[in-house]
Write a protein that binds this DNA or RNA. Structure first.
Lengths: 145, 145
DNA sequence: GATGAAACCTAACCTTT
DNA sequence: AAAGGTTAGGTTTCATC
């Protein structure tokens, strides 16, 4: 992982379909050299995949909320994972420090379907209660770039 | 946006470098027809870009936290945005319903640098106090990256 | 880094509905 | 007209040197 690798990652982040030759022109390598590095970055797990960014509203994911989940007693992360993986609206979740057991990021079509998804989280075993914050306006969005 | 478009998006989400011919074999179209649809999806803003998923630890973003931001008085979303955009560790943020003014998702190298970033948020004008939850274990990760 | 064959992208043209 | 298929060219990928 030298500076050339980082610059190649930057180019691919901007355009994952850029040709090896084009990337090479920017970073100062031949197409073959770039391909070898990209292949190695994939093999090493540095590049975990090539994807697209899709407008969330197109796929009924324009409404979002962050939810703190509070459980009764002690619940293993595995139990929580199983529960949350069964709710497709959950896009991101983790166990956290502090009073809540987990924080869950939900994405859905509208408030109604968001509430429906939240209910599925809330009515699961072990879950005591939740504390929700519905996103009104997005301020920063650098998760996908 | 018909079902073919959705299936093409699914294929590209799995592998943004898949060939048009390969995608066509799966969805039942010729390579040209797939290319025309992809070009249209890009032109219409449905596909917002082609990117890579990079292992967060490689780029010093392995430690994360969710932070509720509470402000004094009334603060416009624009002021909050300006503030948060100047902290590179902020990967995601939005104004929310409930008692907090905003929720901020931070990613950094380790706890120490996370705390440093949090301080930059906390010491900004208008910010009264924050309430943080550091992520211990990731449960679900379906965010498009 | 260079080479060459195979695979792919792309645009123009044709067919179908 | 709108959408898909076919073809032909130029370019890119990829294994090998």
């Amino acid at each position: 992982m030298d500076s050339l690798d980082h610059r190649i990652l930057d180019r691919l982040r901007l355009n994952a379909r850029a040709g090896y030759g084009d990337i090479g022109n920017v970073v100062g390598l031949s197409a073959s050299a770039v391909k070898r590095r990209v292949d190695r970055l994939v093999a090493d797990g540095v590049i975990q995949g090539f994807t697209i960014k899709v407008d969330p509203t197109i796929e009924d994911r324009g409404t979002e909320a962050w939810v703190e989940v509070y459980c009764r007693g002690t619940v293993s992360p595995d139990e929580l994972r199983t529960l949350l993986e069964n709710v497709p609206e959950v896009v991101d979740a983790g166990t956290v420090t502090g009073s809540a057991d987990a924080i869950v990021h939900l994405r859905s079509k509208d408030i109604a379907s968001l509430e429906e998804a939240l209910d599925r989280v809330r009515l699961a075993p072990h879950v005591d209660h939740t504390r929700s914050a519905i996103v009104m306006s997005r301020l920063v969005s650098r998760e996908q770039r």
